[in-house]
Design a binder for these strands. Structure first.
Lengths: 194, 194, 194, 194
DNA sequence: ACGTAAGCGAGACGGTACGTCGAGTCTTGGT
DNA sequence: ACCAAGACTCGACGTACCGTCTCGCTTACGT
């Protein structure tokens, strides 16, 4: 009766299977580094699940990965205790480090893909939003503090630093994530004008 | 005699076929927006070429696209006549515009892919290098001019602006490429410190 | 419980598909008259079946044709009511007629092929054996009756007559199957010694 | 002037190449035991010849094999010195032995193929005819001698014995070629009637 | 002696079929 | 209604030959 407590008839879907599928998807993504290289069959096999159990839940690979990726909630470093510049470096050190992680980088590339705009949207909402909001808050606070100029566009700053982190990955032997973050943040911090 | 003018035995490879293949690959990439969605068979059909003619030249799809992409030589805007900031905006207006082009964006995403590092390297060398070098020259000139501070890291600037352009694409109705470029460049130009 | 009535897990193989494949194989063999001219793809298309459905059941063309051919069970004429010589003529009239049928002849040629000895064995067992046994029985009965000499080797007789039928096919306008059978049987029947 | 001694302009065709091609074709046929398994490319490679050199001479594989097979001229045993029955056994011992030779058997199977009737005709003319004629002569002589009955059809006898030889091949360990030939000839010789 | 014309080897050309793999769907018996 | 298993059709994969077509070079003749 109660539309909330009432359940559909028949055997309920197995949470166990669902978790195994999402876990398998991420594991394989980390291994193969590319969504296209991960087959649904491989996910089903790894999760010890029938293919139908996957297709019952998601219409296709992309939606499955959207959900799988959404389970990743990168922890935020503790913010607001330090000067703004240090907080920014802390956050983008983490972003730079993620760019070195096969899984996180694969997710980012997936996000860049033009063929699945809703997925991009979902990832932005569920995964990136907290961090973006945190940075936006930091910047707003910085403006209030007088630490940064009031005419700054927070979104532009996020895009610059995120994109910079994405592009500045180096082949082995390069700078550490923290060094890279520091360089990026400082460049934006000071500007380049004489 | 001359080891350079001497030719290998047998019928030489058809330049016509090679061109048609590369053209077809790029056309299909622009249509499908994703390397994974472009099949070798479709390229062969579009180029009116046998599959073997493709596999004779490239071991796989990635190498083929690496060459196809290398044929794209984005023209540089004329630089050096205007103040540094205007030149930067001109260049990154072009970059932002490319991010709105399905083909160029697909190429960029391909470049981000971790599974083919040598291809990334080739694209960087052959396609991006002229532009990067141009920006580096601009910045060096700016330092000499006294337009920008001497302690700036040119590569960091390129990464920030390129990545920013890559990430700041908006769904239809957003800012124009030039507006976005201007915003990005100004943010880096002025810095964010009060 | 019962190891015979228990079934393997998963969707069972479609008998419908299997029949369609075998039927298509024989139809195409009759049309093209040569196993080499019949492609698996053509069989799959004719049977409205995926190629994998064929390869799931048979490792290759030869094994498929072995099974297809095994479905051919040439009806035996009614034997034992007539004098032995008439029965032999009846049987070998049928064999001669088969040598004029593209399908049956293609099967016979396939059987002669040295590259697939087990297939030859299977065809002999499943298709030819009943007829051979029938002839052997006839001959044994003939010996008992006193119609034929007791020192005859039944297998030699079968080989002679079968091979004779195989080789004596004529281009259009030749003798009828029955005339040829009669000539062959009579030659063996009477011998050639003065 | 002389249409016989005049030669076409240009470089004459290489007899060396032609021989090598035919030799290679037969060698590969003996190895692979089946015309369908021998590719033109393999013949060209084995003969160290370009494919065009083959296609310049023959329109296709079948015509090439027709010529290759025509170079096989099985030697006739010396006939006419012995009683007819012994001569027949001598000839069909050779036929039985050929049925055990991969090459000769492959040729025979090729001959049975319905898709190339002209080739069959050529092989009959050029390869089999001498032997058939020899057997026919033997039989005619036998009739004259009074060794065999005058109402025998020579062609039927040839077909029976040839077909019998073709069909009576046994897996390893069977009777020798001579034993088989003797059995076949004796069966036809004596007939089976009591 | 030299040009012309066809043959030569090599190997690329557009195709067709191969046998494999994965996509997304369907069909079992059993939970 | 769910589940694992494994069938289904379909389409792309990369390979092997088909028969044809260029290449640069060779061979033989008629001038």
């Amino acid at each position: 009766m109660d539309p909330i407590t009432s359940r559909p008839p028949g055997r309920p879907r197995s949470q166990r299977a669902e978790d195994a599928i999402l876990r398998a998807a991420l594991a394989l993504l980390a291994e193969r580094k590319n969504v296209a290289e991960v087959s649904i069959e491989a996910i089903a096999a790894r999760a010890e699940v029938g293919k139908a159990t996957i297709y019952r839940r998601w219409p296709g690979k992309e939606e499955l990965f959207a959900d799988a990726v959404a389970t990743l909630r990168p922890p935020l470093p503790e913010l607001g205790q330090a000067p703004l510049r240090d907080d920014l470096i802390a956050i983008f050190t983490q972003v730079c480090a993620e760019m070195d992680s096969p899984l996180d980088r694969a997710v980012t590339v997936l996000m860049m893909d033009q063929t699945h705009p809703e997925i991009v949207h979902r990832i932005k909402q569920q995964v990136l939003a907290p961090r973006s909001r945190a940075v936006a808050n930091l910047l707003r606070r910085g403006v209030d503090n007088g630490e940064i100029t009031p005419d700054v566009d927070p979104e532009a700053v996020v895009n610059l630093l995120t994109g910079g982190a994405f592009f500045c990955r180096r082949p082995a032997g390069g700078r550490s994530a923290q060094e890279r973050a520091q360089l990026l943040v400082d460049t934006v911090w000071n500007g380049i004008r004489a």
